[in-house]
Amino acid sequence: MPIELPPPIAAYVAANARLDLDGMLKPFAHDAVFIDNGKRFAGEAAIRQLFEDEVMPVKAIFAPDTVRDEEGDVIVEGPAHGDFPGSPLRFTYRFTLVNGTIKTLETTV
């Protein structure tokens, strides 16, 4: 049974499943911050570069299987698979949504 995700998160996950770089960026606020295992990427250009360098080459696709609200953030967990060592790895994504956009996304393994 598919899980219900807020629209910007659902759009991000769907675009990631297609490896659609522009679609993955679209739900983010222009001044969004992406924290990837402690490394901080601020703004659209930095997040685009992260996706170009880390997601697209290894075809990393996140497949969420749980979602919950925690202190106003949306926590989404599930495996990511692709052409990288240890695939699939289980990730936790912490989304902060503001005005229908992703303001902050923090990922941890």
Rank of each mutant, 00 (worst) to 15 (best):
A42L: 08
F28C: 03
Y12K: 05
D69Y: 08
L5M: 07
M1N: 10
N37H: 15
P8A: 14
A15W: 10
A42F: 02
A42P: 00
A32F: 06
G38M: 00
T107F: 13
F51Y: 12
A15P: 02
F41H: 15
P2K: 12
L21T: 07
R48V: 05
G38R: 10
T107H: 01
I9V: 15
A14K: 13
E70K: 09
A80Y: 04
A15H: 10
A32Q: 06
A46I: 02
P8W: 05
V58L: 07
Y12L: 14
A46Q: 07
L25D: 12
K59R: 15
N37S: 15
T96N: 11
E4R: 08
N99C: 02
M24S: 10
D36V: 08
I61P: 01
V76M: 10
D73W: 04
D36G: 11
D20T: 11
V74W: 01
V98E: 14
F41V: 07
E54F: 11
M1A: 15
N37P: 00
N37D: 15
M56C: 04
T92F: 00
P27Q: 02
E4K: 09
A45K: 14
A46P: 01
D36N: 14
R40K: 14
L19H: 06
L89A: 13
N16A: 09
L5K: 04
G72P: 00
K39L: 10
V76N: 06
S87E: 00
F84N: 00
A46R: 06
F28H: 06
G23C: 11
F41P: 04
G23H: 09
L97F: 01
L21K: 04
A29L: 04
K103G: 08
M24E: 10
I35D: 14
E71R: 15
G72W: 06
A45C: 07
G43Y: 02
M1Y: 14
R40I: 15
Y93H: 15
G43I: 01
V13P: 00
R40N: 04
E70V: 13
L21C: 11
A17E: 14
E71I: 00
N99K: 13
R68F: 07
P57H: 10
L19I: 12
G100P: 13
P27K: 06
V109Q: 08
R68M: 07
M24Q: 11
P7F: 05
V76L: 04
A46M: 09
L89N: 08
E71P: 00
